[in-house]
Design a protein around this nucleic acid. Structure first.
Lengths: 111, 111
DNA sequence: ATATATACATAATTTTCTTATGCATAACAT
DNA sequence: ATGTTATGCATAAGAAAATTATGTATATAT
């Protein structure tokens, strides 16, 4: 990812959320999309991304379609049915996580 | 921590924030405080906490004072000057992280 | 020609956590 | 009195997830 180790553990959720929103994406596209959304702050490294995609596929949460565009290979990923269900859970967990972290950072705002 | 791996990488920031706020705390107290703040959702395990405290101390970010209370040992930790400075940076990173994650989860709300 | 962008992949290592275990005292319930 | 829960620290083995460093290959811009 980047310097801040806070992103550790959030990569799978990020991937799944983007796929839920975009329908289907290929690896490189995901890295660019995240960079764009976070204004360059979060850079997903290939060494983290590709193994993560492979694992999600192995778990049956993603499906792959290989296509050749401009003579270059692209592997398009999309959520399976199981993956879509799981995404809902992960996003709920993420919201809880964010809420908890905000409570820790700013205890005065939570009541 | 708990089930959700999202908390990976956030333990150091949590410890430092609490110490900034509370002045000084001992390990067990930190686990209880976090449990209380998050209404039982986040349980810091000893296997994660103590090595983290030792590392922060080794990095010169924390100081320790050992005290005996009720015939039981307590190791009170507090931020060093270096630790206090670093805490400011880590909290800024945390706020950026939260903002970025919220943007990813809910892109419509960011403009 | 050379660098940058696009597009995938994996291997070695590091970081961080979980799980399991160990020691010891205090408080509480039966 | 005896067992369980709470308090308080610690470390070791293993798993999970990342970083860093490579490797391959095509396209595009300078």
């Amino acid at each position: 990812m980047k310097n801040s180790q806070l992103y550790k553990g959030s990569l799978n959720t990020i991937i799944m959320k983007l796929l839920e929103e975009q329908g289907r994406m290929y690896g490189y596209e995901i890295t660019q999309k995240v960079k764009e959304i976070t204004k360059g702050e979060l850079n997903i490294t290939e060494g983290a991304l590709y193994p993560a995609l492979h694992k999600l596929e192995a778990e049956g949460l993603l499906d792959v379609e290989v296509e050749k565009v401009d003579n270059r290979l692209r592997k398009y990923y999309k959520l399976t049915e199981k993956g879509a269900t799981e995404t809902v859970n992960r996003l709920a967990e993420l919201e809880e996580f964010i809420k908890n972290m905000q409570t820790i950072v700013n205890p005065k705002l939570s009541y």
